[in-house]
Nucleic acid binder design. Structure first.
Lengths: 343, 343
DNA sequence: ACACTTACGGCAATGCTTTGCCTAAGACTG
DNA sequence: CAGTCTTAGGCAAAGCATTGCCGTAAGTGT
């Protein structure tokens, strides 16, 4: 009744296994854990008994003794958005290797809620926590008051002695521009999102440096900042094209912006990629893979970021915490929107 | 060292509280849990000691005794996709009310992986499990062999005695058509996705019924099945318009399809919503809110679905399991693409 | 045949909280 | 003043797995 009418009742305990195998409880434990001095025959018998009862050690009891729960907490701020998910998947993947379970909670961008979630996780005796930021930007440090190690992902802590894993936005900007140049473009403009985001500033900086290194100037001299969505992409593209009809390459701060840009180019009879190469950021497949033409995009490698954050947290949990920021290199997701020689 | 150099060492135990308050451990427990016969003054003193040490009971010890971990498992199949996330958020929300923690694992659509994840969750002694399907369709039952209650969300179990919470696809189809009719449309076509999805069939059935109830026929006599993406939306819209230029309303099986449809309509100089009202499904904001014009869409109320699934699971965990399928009513997310009278 | 070594496996304790039962002290009544 | 009732709080056990230590039986050597 207590289990809701489902299932086959209580789970087997080590005592059940020991009884079935005709040994004491500690002996059974040793057999299954490969410790102690036991005859092979005894080990096999206990092993068989455990299998027969499909015994799995109770992690509560084990955790109680080891003072480790085997659970890590993951606090996210942007579950609805596109960034948390790949990070989360990468992290879950990596934790799986260490047989750690992931406890998820979403703070919805609210600092109070975050505090509560953290307390709840600590109360649950998680062994470590990853905090995934809503945006790739600096955030306040949570300090050293928590009794477990902490790794910041996507958003980095303001305290440089905290451990943060972040995307390399500067490199993203460079990569985008270098790719356009490699495609034979030389009159390159940049349309990006909210100037209040560190990511947009960094990407623009990277783009400018890449242009400079190739002896080029940015068309319009500066990037157009606005919002992260299609509407701004349309507006900015229209404005930029009006002033610079000779544009032949466009870096967009997000795939959403790029989609708006493609709309306007299509309307004006500018063929992509023949006349202009367009590259987006984020590589959000549902947008980039099905636009017309499919959109080349910079992928932040968020899954790798999540994996790395998990790896760093595991290290910290094992007593060797890392300090400082680690950046994850972006990668190019090549599609048709940038390849002038493509069909 | 064991905690990675962070934090302030070990957490307080009940023994610490008891010592500080000058009572025995069981007395401290009773005071904090409101049990037993204690003087008010004693209670207060223990409470104060607990606060001072910021004591929280160790859930491992508590769970060991109660044979309840306070953790529920959530197995998902489509974390990358758009459907799991709102369900997950709704569920997490609802579980929070019962002070249950959510342990997440993603099976990536792989049955073997799913089996492993379930075993891992059971090994973790979760008190219940929600399985979120990748598509709103029937799936094989996992049977009654698990020792904890199970609720299926989004995809329903083939076994009608399992508990499943699913979106009402039939109602979605009806709602879409009824809305178009309410907007004064009468020559309505349907473009939807993969015919192998139960959801597309159900929605079409609902649409047909709604048309029939209003004495209308579907333009083209039958829905166009294809894929869930923009490409198919473009192709199908072109074909449908060629054959039926008098079309004045279009139900799309997904927002992605609708976006492709809007592309073609724009190209052909058909103005939305003046000439044709277009309605999508899924209400995926990043697509629907920023299309031109913004897209009216049917929202499956997935967050509510998640909440409901969580509520059912909690009931089952408390000994009153629900049986059968429960459907969640969809809701209209009204935007400009359907309102002929709008600016 | 006796002493000694080795191998095997059991005992007890630990980790933390909760609950049922019991006792000691204080209050009240005859 | 003695005896009973009440009240406050302590004791012990349970829940499960793990580990160090110890005892015992078998086996070996002289």
């Amino acid at each position: 009744m207590a289990n809701g009418g489902q299932g086959n009742g209580k789970m087997a305990t080590l005592a059940d296994v020991a009884r079935l195998a005709g040994v004491s409880v500690p002996t059974a434990s040793k057999a299954l854990r490969g410790r102690g001095q036991l005859r092979q025959e005894t080990r096999d018998r206990i092993r068989a008994a455990a299998d027969q009862l499909s015994f799995t050690p109770n992690p509560l009891a084990r955790g109680l003794l080891a003072a480790r729960s085997g659970i890590v907490g993951l606090v996210t701020h942007d579950l609805e958005g596109r960034f948390s998910i790949p990070i989360l998947m990468g992290a879950e993947d990596a934790f799986g290797l260490d047989r750690l379970s992931v406890m998820l909670s979403d703070a919805r961008g609210d600092a109070i809620r975050e505090q509560r979630q953290l307390e709840a996780l600590v109360a649950q005796r998680v062994d470590g926590i990853i905090v995934v930021g809503a945006r790739s930007d600096e955030r306040a440090s949570l300090g050293r008051s928590l009794p477990v190690p902490l790794v910041y992902a996507y958003a980095h802590s303001a305290d440089p002695t905290d451990c943060s894993i972040i995307p390399n936005s500067y490199q993203s900007g460079r990569l985008a521009v270098d790719h356009l140049i490699a495609c034979g473009r030389s009159r390159i403009g940049v349309i990006t999102g909210d100037p209040g985001y560190g990511a947009s500033q960094e990407r623009v900086r990277g783009a400018l440096d890449a242009l400079h290194d190739s002896g080029l100037a940015m068309v319009g001299d500066q990037a157009l900042f606005g919002a992260w969505n299609q509407d701004w992409g349309r507006a900015a593209a229209a404005a930029l094209l009006d002033r610079h009809p000779d544009l032949d390459g466009l870096v967009c701060g997000s795939d959403q912006i790029a989609l708006g840009v493609l709309d306007v180019l299509g309307e004006r009879g500018v063929t992509v990629p023949r006349d202009i190469s367009v590259i987006g950021h984020d590589n959000w497949e549902v947008l980039s893979a099905f636009s017309r033409p499919p959109l080349t995009s910079i992928d932040m490698n968020l899954e790798e970021l999540g994996r790395r954050a998990a790896a760093r947290l595991v290290e910290a949990m094992n007593g060797t915490p890392a300090e400082g920021r680690e950046v994850i290199a972006p990668r190019l997701a090549l599609r048709k929107s940038t390849m002038p020689t493509a069909v």
